[in-house]
Design a protein around this nucleic acid. Structure first.
Lengths: 140, 140
DNA sequence: TATTGTTATACTCTATAACTATA
DNA sequence: TATAGTTATAGAGTATAACAATA
């Protein structure tokens, strides 16, 4: 007596829509800071590592280097990151957060954490923690 | 003594990459059947409901009706769905699976289930079940 | 020769506007 | 006049190829 499989039973459907729901929340709370979730991700990555060239950042974030150019153009126009010439290798740009970027990073992370709490609201604290742990075990 | 927040700590990162990993697995196992995960989702939806017009399907799946046209064009070219004129309202198309589509649906669902098992392999059976339940609680 | 950053280009996915045929 | 399906078009996001500057 198995019922007809529904779209909502597909893990792909669930993961895609979960991401979209969270992304909507994150976009909303970050809007006052003039960045989006993807840009915050880049700020977090830059802040967490030694000063790096565009290529190094692109490789570590698994973003195409031509895509990185456009992303950094946007963030530089917003004044949150700066490109400086590398001291020894003049082909490279060293990418770093500006003071304003440090501020936006801090505010953005607080806002993002708030969006995550909203997103996880349907789960109890214990289940939410296990949910995150499961995701970390799955994502390589 | 909190360490620097890393990109991998962000729920958005985890959900996006989890989806991409699963999508890669699903794409691989569905390739022999000449459909992708999105198309299988549409076949599942059509099979699970009463015969419906393109618009009804688009609304229920939250897909734009112009996107639905292109999706159905592809699936019709592959011979898995057929558009038939509605008996009473000739503006409408009734969309249904062909016999071949029924076959592809069955094979595709088996393949998709296999991909999901691969995807959930890092989790114990119990944790995997709770993971899916948590996703269902979150997704509206 | 190889590498870094860049530009030009194209392809996918999605959405908006406008057209057609039917109601 | 409103609706179903369609087409044309444009906007994101991403990827490939080719170029200039530098190593």
């Amino acid at each position: 007596m198995s019922s007809t499989p529904e779209l909502r039973d597909r893990l792909g459907y669930l993961l895609k829509h979960a991401f979209m729901q969270l992304d909507d929340l994150v976009t909303a709370v970050l809007a006052p800071h003039n960045i989006n979730g993807r840009e915050l991700g880049l700020l977090i990555h830059i802040a967490a590592h030694e000063p790096a060239s565009q290529q190094q950042i692109a490789q570590r974030m698994q973003i195409d280097r031509t895509t990185m150019v456009a992303l950094l153009d946007t963030l530089e126009a917003k004044g949150v990151v700066a490109r400086r010439p590398h001291a020894e290798d003049r082909r490279r740009n060293v990418v770093a957060l500006t003071d304003h970027g440090q501020q936006i990073l801090k505010l953005g992370q607080e806002a993002s954490a708030k969006a995550e709490r909203q997103f996880l609201e349907p789960l109890s604290g214990d289940v939410a923690t296990k949910f995150r742990t499961a995701l970390q075990a799955i994502v390589k």
